[in-house]
Deep mutational scan, measured.
Amino acid sequence: SAVVMEEGSPGEVPVLVEPPGLEDVEAALGMDRRTDAYSRSSSVSSQEEKSLHAEELVGRGIPIERVVSSEGGRPSVDLSFQPSQPLSKSSSSPELQTLQDILGDPGDKADVGRLSPEVKARSQSGTLDGESAAWSASGEDSRGQPEGPLPSSSPRSPSGLRPRGYTISDSAPSRRGKRVERDALKSRATASNAEKVPGINPSFVFLQLYHSPFFGDESNKPILLPNESQSFERSVQLLDQIPSYDTHKIAVLYVGEGQSNSELAILSNEHGSYRYTEFLTGLGRLIELKDCQPDKVYLGGLDVCGEDGQFTYCWHDDIMQAVFHIATLMPTKDVDKHRCDKKRHLGNDFVSIVYNDSGEDFKLGTIKGQFNFVHVIVTPLDYECNLVSLQCRKDMEGLVDTSVAKIVSDRNLPFVARQMALHANMASQVHHSRSNPTDIYPSKWIARLRHIKRLRQRICEEAAYSNPSLPLVHPPSHSKAPAQTPAEPTPGYEVGQRKRLISSVEDFTEFV
């Protein structure tokens, strides 16, 4: 048969007729292969192709491409040299491709048809291009793949890379869960390890502090508590009631339409708007009261037996805890006409967050109470924005700035309102402590230090009264110190430094 060459192609190359033996071998191979691939376009007849790359030819070592076609129900084999250009295909004639002069020997084609199974398996396991790669995943090629499931790999992101949580363990979102698992493993320790309690022994800490320079003076030496005195035992138990972190309780009120001037209507609300609910979820963490331990979680007086509701929101960081007394989460009882059960919590909070959804101005004093010092007013606006402002009593104007209003988005509203309420509550605590000038409020841990110092002074006084020969370590507060001759004046800087060093040991009130 003659071949018409394309323009620009090399000279004529004689194409030899395939021997009958080659056709029989390739026909047997075509019957084993699956003929249901995917359909081509209507211009080209339905056909199945599979590209198999052999590394070497037997005796020649030339890479070839073998295409199996099922045109007219008769499979045909096409061998081509890759750099050459194939002729145009037609549905009426068999596929013809040019070969190099080196394939002119018909014996070479017979060798190609009689490829060993080793070469076929190696060509099938190679990388296939384009559409033949999808075909190689079918059941027909499963014989050339190794048996057994593939090893499982770690989760992959859409980009093909490992997620960040699997790369950096410290930033993994499941870090707290692993800590819980470690605690569970520790709890399952053997009885021999049960006595080993991690941490620092208080006796060891005391020993280090006792021999430090801070205890060089007799006034700073630790003293032993009497065991037989019940009054001192009660004082030590009272110390446990003062937490070592700051605590805040903040009221949250929802004002519906037409309720801006009605205290009873505001306290009777059992739910609010959708934006109000989203605002609550951002204030803190939802907790169930019956599962809380009052000595570990500050509840601000809420009952854990269901008297004040089942849930509330709280927030904490390293040095403070805040609980929100939310009116809509507290039960509304029919027998309580004046809502006294709610007001006994909300009316005693220094700061209230008022979500004013009424469309009218909310005035300070609508919720009557002796300790309502500051109101954080949240007014929802259009386009997911809110107006946040402050209202306070006249005696609080020096501590709280009420002249600045803020426009905040719904997303950042819980954070801004919480921070403003916490700052206002700190100012309210300082303002409330002014009624007792001898006990200015600095912080909870300073209050613990003052309680310890008062307890020490009482013990020293009782020891001096029981044994008059012992001198008083600290003179009583009601006694007057003996007159001392004025010492020589020293520079102001040295006096300030000495006073600062003494105050650092005794108390921190002056620095606050």
Rank of each mutant, 00 (worst) to 15 (best):
S466Q: 10
Q237S: 11
V408W: 01
D303H: 07
Y493N: 15
K290H: 08
G369Y: 05
G306H: 10
D317G: 03
E263W: 03
Q241N: 12
R454T: 14
I242E: 12
V351A: 03
H432S: 06
P380G: 01
R411K: 14
F279V: 00
R498K: 14
I446M: 07
I326A: 04
H478P: 15
A424C: 13
S466R: 07
L501V: 14
L283F: 02
K290G: 08
Y254E: 01
K290D: 11
A265G: 07
K290V: 11
I502E: 15
M426W: 03
L449T: 14
F415A: 03
H478W: 12
A447H: 12
A322D: 03
V473K: 15
G306A: 09
D295Q: 07
S479A: 13
K444Y: 08
I319R: 03
A447S: 09
N436V: 10
L289G: 13
E278W: 03
L346P: 04
G256H: 02
L501E: 13
R418V: 07
D246F: 06
E233V: 11
R450W: 05
K480H: 14
A265W: 01
P491D: 12
G309P: 15
C314N: 11
T379W: 03
S403L: 04
R344P: 06
P489I: 09
E307H: 12
D349I: 08
T312C: 11
G359T: 04
A405F: 12
C385P: 02
S358E: 01
D291C: 06
Q484A: 12
E218V: 09
Y245E: 10
R411P: 06
L224N: 13
A427S: 04
M320G: 06
D318N: 07
S477K: 12
K499P: 12
R418D: 00
E510I: 05
G365H: 09
L422Y: 06
N261M: 07
P486E: 09
V354L: 03
P414L: 01
G398E: 06
F279S: 00
G284E: 04
M330K: 05
I440S: 11
Q484Y: 10
D357A: 03
G258S: 04
R411M: 07
F362C: 03
A481F: 08
K453N: 15
G398T: 09
T485V: 12
R285E: 15
Q259D: 03
Q497T: 14
A322E: 05
R458F: 14
M320N: 14
R454I: 07
C314A: 12
P475W: 11
V236L: 12
I367D: 04
D439G: 06
V473P: 13
P476T: 15
L225K: 08
T402L: 07
M320Y: 06
D401L: 03
Y313C: 08
L472H: 15
P380F: 00
R458E: 15
C460H: 09
D308I: 08
G369N: 09
N269G: 03
I377W: 01
N425P: 02
Q457Y: 08
Y254M: 00
D246R: 05
V430H: 15
A421V: 01
V354D: 01
H478G: 15
V252A: 01
N425Q: 04
D334N: 12
S466I: 09
V323K: 11
C392I: 06
E488W: 10
S231R: 10
Y254R: 01
N436Y: 07
R450S: 12
I440R: 07
E488Y: 08
R418S: 11
R339M: 15
Q310R: 15
V408E: 01
R434E: 11
L299T: 10
E462G: 15
S389I: 04
K343S: 13
S231K: 07
V400Q: 04
Y254V: 00
Q457K: 14
L346D: 06
D217L: 14
Y355K: 00
P380R: 00
I223M: 08
L238W: 08
D336K: 10
A405H: 13
H432E: 09
Q457R: 08
P476Y: 13
N436P: 05
V505S: 14
Q293Y: 10
I459R: 07
V297R: 15
R339K: 08
Q310S: 09
H451P: 06
K342E: 05
D217N: 13
S352G: 03
V404L: 11
Y441V: 14
Q230K: 11
N220F: 13
V430P: 01
S479G: 13
E233F: 08
V378N: 01
F415H: 03
C292N: 12
C460I: 13
L346I: 15
N386R: 00
E307G: 14
R234T: 13
S435R: 12
E461Q: 10
I353G: 00
G272E: 02
T328V: 01
Q370V: 14
S260P: 04
A464L: 07
N386P: 00
V335L: 08
V430Y: 15
D291Q: 14
N227C: 09
V354C: 03
T328P: 04
